[in-house]
């Protein structure tokens, strides 16, 4: 198993945002994570990526216990993520954003740069440009990240996450704000990444995107995992239907 979360729990005051959730992801696997608003999906990603510390439970990455490890250490170990609300470095250019994403794979070059000649990070810049091309942002390399359209910002966040050469990529609603054509390209990209041995945990409200990319889907409701299985199984699950209908009744 690449990632194993066992009994992971997170409370915010009285709310149990994530309640004793087990989740396993193996290499080359895309797992979907769905559930109504407030179900605890983002919280679970924050726990896996180290932004939040679990109140109970354990998380293992490639067999090693990483419970409570800080986010920067987890990135170095191969977990990368995007944010539901898009958190780019707005005042930096597109290419600089991706270079920051490559931080853990770059040799520190502050000392080498004291010598005025040569570009010590040329190889990294080439890789970063290739990533920009891959997500379709070549023409926007020098634009400030904050100037990009919403869809471009989402793609840039994915490029930035990929720059750290992750083993596990956590995507929090990557298709939000994308039009159908963009979502289609995103689906192709996700499939290509899986073929390149990157495991993916995909949170998405666009059910078709989840069904079209993930071989396994976990469903959260009120912090609990209420179902897990293949797309067909989930689609026919009574519990899942009730969770969604129930939430619509409330809303």
């Amino acid at each position: 198993m690449l990632l194993e979360a066992a009994g992971v729990t997170k409370r915010f005051g009285g709310v149990v945002a994530v309640n004793a959730v087990d989740l396993a992801i193996s290499q080359r696997q895309a797992v979907g994570l769905i559930g109504p608003n407030g179900a605890g999906k983002t919280t679970l990603i924050n726990l896996i990526s180290g932004q939040l510390r679990a109140d109970a439970g354990a998380i293992r990455l490639a067999g090693a216990d990483v419970t409570g490890a800080p986010p920067h250490a987890l990135t170095a170990r191969g977990i990368a993520r995007t944010f539901q609300g898009v958190r780019l470095f707005k005042g930096l250019s597109t290419i600089e954003n991706v270079l920051v994403g490559r931080h853990v794979r770059m040799r520190a070059d502050a000392l080498r740069r004291l010598w005025p000649l040569g570009i010590p990070d040329r190889a990294d810049r080439d890789r970063v440009r290739a990533l920009l091309e891959r997500v379709g942002l070549t023409g926007r390399a020098e634009a400030l990240a904050g100037e990009l359209s919403y869809g471009d910002q989402r793609r840039l966040e994915i490029a930035r996450a990929l720059a750290s050469e992750p083993r596990l990529l956590l995507l929090d609603e990557p298709a939000a704000g994308m039009n159908p054509a963009e979502t289609g390209r995103l689906r192709d990209l996700i499939r290509a990444l899986i073929d390149e041995d990157i495991a993916i945990l995909l949170i998405e409200h666009d059910v078709r995107l989840v069904m079209g990319t993930c071989e396994r889907i976990a469903v959260l409701n009120f912090g609990r995992k209420i179902a897990e299985g293949g797309p067909a199984e989930i689609q026919s699950s009574v519990a899942v239907r009730e969770a969604y209908l129930g939430s619509e009744d409330v809303a």
């Binding site: 990135t75 170095a76 780019l88 470095f89 920051v100 931080h103 853990v104």
Partner: peptide, 18 residues
């Protein structure tokens, strides 16, 4: 670049491995 990233968004900087 890491300093600039921290200035722009600490949480995002940490999740880039800084």
């Amino acid at each position: 670049r890491a300093w600039a990233a921290i200035r722009e968004d600490e949480t995002a900087a940490a999740s880039q491995g800084i």
